[in-house]
């Protein structure tokens, strides 16, 4: 069974998904970071495929992508690293990238390789719903690979239903109209949006991302959804660490879960 499906069957609350960019800070850190996240007990690991033009990402992830590419990170290297990590880790793992990266690899080869190396789901923020439905849905089903579409405070109800119908695994709720990045707190307007979505009784579990950066924002997100996704704050912690990757990761996860 797909590890994401399995996870949500056994745990519906306080899900912690940690994002990092593959190849950052160093090209070969991927396996070590996955090991550290695994040992720190996170529920989901999201690995960003570094991209030259990450439109949906804020400065922290942009910069980490740029560093990773300068480090010589490639998609095939990432697949090898994930296969290696799968020898010891059974934590559900998601790849986040842009549609062009999947296109250039060859869509079916990409999906097939993901499955082979042990990826459980994808986030492709610029893949249109219509194109997924028309061209790729059967492939995701055939290979039992998850896909999480994004929804935002501006997404209308009909489209939310469509996103719920097409997502496999969980829905990625963007907390605010924004690009990724750690921000200040959560506003009343955002809470109203979280409540509105919670009341819709969607089929898929929901994880809240963008602007979740510490214990307080994580707790709030967990009150309104099944859990949250943290990216930029973790990348900053990795970049600024004086400790080993394992030590910095353990500290970070402990603070979030406090």
């Amino acid at each position: 069974m797909n590890r994401i499906t399995h996870l949500f069957q056994h745990k519906q609350s306080r899900i912690l998904n940690i994002y990092f960019t593959a190849g950052h800070p160093h090209r070969d850190d991927t396996v070590e970071i996955i090991r550290a996240l695994d040992q720190a007990g996170v529920d989901l690991i999201e690995v960003g495929i570094p991209y030259s033009d990450p439109l949906a990402d804020g400065p922290t992830i942009q910069q980490s992508s740029q560093v990773a590419l300068q480090n010589g990170m490639t998609l095939s290297l990432l697949f090898e690293q994930i296969a290696e990590a799968r020898r010891f880790s059974d934590t559900p793992l998601i790849l986040m990238g842009y549609f062009n990266q999947m296109m250039q690899y060859g869509e079916e080869s990409f999906i097939k390789t993901c499955k082979e190396v042990g990826v459980d789901g994808l986030i492709l923020p610029d893949l249109p719903l219509y194109e997924y439905e028309r061209s790729y849905k059967p492939l995701f089903e055939q290979y039992d690979l998850g896909i999480s579409f994004l929804l935002t405070p501006q997404t209308d109800e009909q489209r939310i239903r469509k996103i719920d119908e097409l997502s496999r695994g969980f829905i990625y709720m963007v907390s605010d109209a924004s690009i990724t990045g750690a921000k200040q707190g959560i506003s009343d307007k955002q809470l109203a949006y979280f409540e509105r979505i919670a009341a819709m009784q969607l089929r898929n579990p929901r994880l809240i991302g963008f602007g979740i950066s510490n214990s307080e924002t994580f707790q709030t997100a967990c009150q309104y959804a099944n859990g949250a996704i943290i990216g930029s704050a973790f990348i900053q912690a990795l970049g600024q660490r004086e400790n080993t990757v394992a030590g910095a990761t353990l500290n970070f996860v402990r603070q979030i879960r406090a």
Partner: peptide, 19 residues
């Protein structure tokens, strides 16, 4: 209607831009 000239065009945008 979806913005294609033959195979080229379309709207490959993150959900935040969709509305």
């Amino acid at each position: 209607e979806l913005g294609y000239y033959g195979e080229f065009g379309g709207a490959y945008i993150p959900e935040m831009l969709y509305p």
